[in-house]
Amino acid sequence: MSLALSAPAFRRFRRHRLAAFGAATIVLLTLGCFLGPFLLPFDDTTIDVMNRFAPPLSGAHVLGTDELGRDMLARLMMGGRVSLIVGFTAMAIGMALGILVGAVAGFHGGWLGAALMRFVDAVLCFPTIFLLLALAALVSPGLLSIIILIAATSWMDVARIVEGQVKSLRERDFAVAAQVLGASDARIIVHELVPNAVAPIVVAATLNVARAILLESYVSFLGYGIQPPVPSWGNMLNNAQIYLTSAPWLAILPGLAITLAVTSFNFLGDGLRDALDPRMRAR
């Protein structure tokens, strides 16, 4: 079978193609969301009651207008800014927290390490959305609080990865030897740990952006995230449900945007896992 003949090459090609698709989409989305609004003749907040519910491709508004006659494309771009900012910053804070907890637990081991990791286990028992919403109910909603809350609920995986790496490194002979020779912890971290841990961390970081974007959309959709009139892909959907029958594009477009962005980060993360860390390679 000719298909079987080229199977491994086909597989690599597919993986790289998906990862490349992901990376390209991310770049395009980022450029589009941050530069696009300057090129558009419409503002995302301008209300135009004469032009409510204009369907996509029907006139000046390429993607139509919403229930207040605001331009959908402009709102999608501004909402995309929010989603991408939340995605990247929440990821960065979450990663920093996870690396910190994981490194402390791994380096000190013993009582403290065990306690920290059991704490990680305990937090992982809470379904993320429940935890996120319960916390969101306690603070006043906004961009900063949603970023912090998402970060606070997505550092545990990274902590586990880093703890595992540090622990296995400590148990290997050369780290012991380096310590005997008087190498400082910092030196060991820079020379031994970083090269080993960087691949799984980069992969986790990419996947965590996807996760943060998704979580932001959930919380905003449910009304506890980004507050109108600031658009976010999530909160654009919470009114859309009412107009599902008459103006389905209000629901379909933001959802497509979320799916596209999240899928892109997931493809990229998967491709990076393949390329960077053969041990984790998905077969």
Binding site: L214, Y218, L237, Q241, A251, P254, G255, T259, V262, N266
Partner: peptide, 12 residues
């Protein structure tokens, strides 16, 4: 499928 927001899939 893992990237689709569940609530949106519900709306669709």
């Amino acid at each position: 499928a893992l990237s689709i927001p569940t609530f949106w899939f519900g709306l669709v």
